[in-house]
């Protein structure tokens, strides 16, 4: 019991149980990721974002929605009381950014949870079966890819009505096609491999082969792509917010905050700049992590 979870236990050449083998494999991936400095910077940024979102209530000195005195506290420059200044409704921008991280995190994780499985399934099914199934699924994908993502999301939000939930749905609907393409391309290279033939000869159903054998091999490259797309998703959400179709006032969404600060950008630069910096840092974090994951997952780049 003392050896449990020790380094030796994790890296054992002869694991004694299923769990040890699985945990050991995850630990090896982690060791590879740990040596990648960019990935660790990205991971730290994202960990901080998550902590910010969880502890926003504790960390924020002011209410994010209810502003101060409109006569004396409007558009204050950054100071010790208001670390990032105040906006035109006398709200503390620092507090709003802290609470805004919740919205950003929600958008990012919901889009990933909705779009990734859809893209994976469409792509692997199309790639595995080929023929007319492939044609139908891929032409649908092409239709989605024919529009710029923001424009298509805009159309969906316009149809569904403005609001952060609809923005998330719209972004998810428009962001799965690249994953489907990627998963299909991966599947085509795996489909004729001997180990797929072997499991076919074991009498496995197509669903079992796709889910148990093809998807795990496509997953790593799709995860990398999703992570790299996170920045784009944040920007799209911010863009929708900026256009007034995403989060509605007084919600502290970063894109909407930039839009609000637009009128004062010359005289009171901090109103638009602070949420802009937040978007920039978080996007950068996801891009770093994505690059790092690609280095770890893709054996061709590893050496």
């Amino acid at each position: 019991m003392t050896l449990y979870w020790s380094r030796e236990w994790l890296l054992a050449e002869q694991p004694a149980s299923r769990r040890q083998a699985r945990v050991g494999q995850a630990y090896r991936t982690w060791l590879a990721l740990r040596t990648n400095r960019m990935a660790m910077v990205g991971l730290t940024i994202i960990a901080l974002l998550i902590l910010m979102a969880i502890f926003a209530g504790v960390l924020a000195p002011f209410d994010p929605i209810q502003g101060g005195d409109l006569r004396t506290e409007r558009l204050q420059p950054p100071s010790w009381t208001h670390l990032m200044g105040t906006d035109d409704l006398a709200r503390d921008i620092y507090s709003r950014i802290l609470y805004g991280s919740r919205i950003t995190l929600m958008v990012v994780s919901l889009v990933a949870v909705i779009a990734t499985p859809v893209g994976l399934l469409v792509g692997t099914i199309a790639g595995y079966f080929g023929g007319w199934i492939d044609n139908v699924l891929m032409r649908i994908t092409d239709i989605f890819l024919a529009f710029p993502q923001l424009v298509l999301a805009l159309a969906f939000v316009a149809a569904l009505g403005p609001g952060i939930e609809n923005a998330i749905i719209a972004i998810a609907i428009t962001s799965w096609p690249p994953y489907a393409r990627l998963a299909r391309a991966e599947t085509l290279t795996i489909r004729n491999a001997d180990h797929i033939a072997a499991i076919q000869l074991q009498g496995a159903s197509s669903a079992r082969i796709i889910w148990g054998h093809v998807v795990p091999l496509c997953l790593s490259s799709v995860i990398v792509r999703v992570t790299l797309d996170m920045a784009g998703i944040i920007l799209t959400a911010a863009g929708l917010g900026f256009l007034g179709l995403g989060a509605q006032p007084p919600q502290p969404e970063w894109g909407a905050m930039i839009a609000g600060g637009r009128q004062f950008i010359i005289d009171d630069w901090w109103v638009a700049t602070m949420p802009g910096i937040a978007i920039f840092v978080v996007s950068l974090g996801f891009n770093f992590l994505g690059d790092g994951l690609r280095d770890v997952f893709d054996p061709k780049v590893r050496k």
Partner: peptide, 12 residues
């Protein structure tokens, strides 16, 4: 059936 290349016939 047993395949020729044991490096390709086992799921990685």
């Amino acid at each position: 059936m047993v395949f020729q290349d044991p490096y390709a016939s086992l799921h990685p």
